[in-house]
Amino acid sequence: MASVLTNIRAELVKQAHRPASWLLLALAGVLTLTFGYGIPYAGFTGTASGAPGADSDLASMLPEMFLGNAVGGLPVFAGALALIFGVLVAGGEYGWQTWKTVLAQRPARTTVYTAKLATLAVGTLLGVLTLCAVTATASALIAVVESQPFDWPGPLALAFGAGAGWLVAFMWASLGVVLAIALRGVALPIGLGLVWLLAVQNLLATIAAPLLDWVADAQEWLPGPNAGALAYAVGTRNTPGVSDIVEPGHATLVVVAYLLAFCVAGGWLLRRRDIA
């Protein structure tokens, strides 16, 4: 156990010192603020008083709704950033050829892999909590400026929102890990992951599903739509990739299943293959 713990410490040090990790976190925060608050608030202030939708636009930016804004990007752009994080955590070892340096120090592959998954769990939790913190701050600012009440979500809602966001982010990050191990690198896994997350999912939902029933049925079992359903359950509205296509319980089970499948597949591949 001590070996796993020291390996987790090693992985945390690697990621904490890596500038790219912090760049991804900063990007997630900036994009979430931009699309969750900056643009909607600019639209709200530019809308004539009393115009249809003006009140609901403001309501979506107040403290009561901040959780929805925090996790709203995770089915798409923030999820893409989590996937990149996962690729970097595992793929960097291929890019720098450091697998042999690490494994020659004696840790078992499963120990290092477990440490990497633990690092992903910590990193994605930190990311989601950061998104919660920046959206909470932004919503509080807007409430002050607009003289609106500070109605914060209750502890259970907070726990559910952060937990759901973490689950989705962790799932995308683990997809990044399995792609990195399967393709033994960084660039191609990021490229393919982003194509799936940003393009294929969207095409399936908007073009294929309305035309083909089986694609529409399959949507209920794909990671993206289920991530979107979880975000919807948290309170995200009017956001690409977010809908109530399935119930929250169904979405949670599917996302957990994908998370486990990605983790197991990555570990199996890493154990089985030679380190070239």
């Binding site: 001590a2 070996s3 020291t6 390996n7 410490r9 090693a10 040090v13 690697k14 010192h17 890596r18 500038p19 960097g92 720098w96 050829q97 450091t98 042999k100 340096t101 690490v102 120090q105 004696r106 840790p107 290092v112």
Partner: peptide, 23 residues
């Protein structure tokens, strides 16, 4: 096959990381 380390870490931090991996 030649030394390979994490380029963004110092020599000392690289060794600390590897010491942790080695236990």
């Amino acid at each position: 096959e030649g030394p390979t380390f994490y380029p963004y870490l110092s020599g000392r931090d690289n060794l600390r990381v590897l010491a942790d991996h080695a236990g």
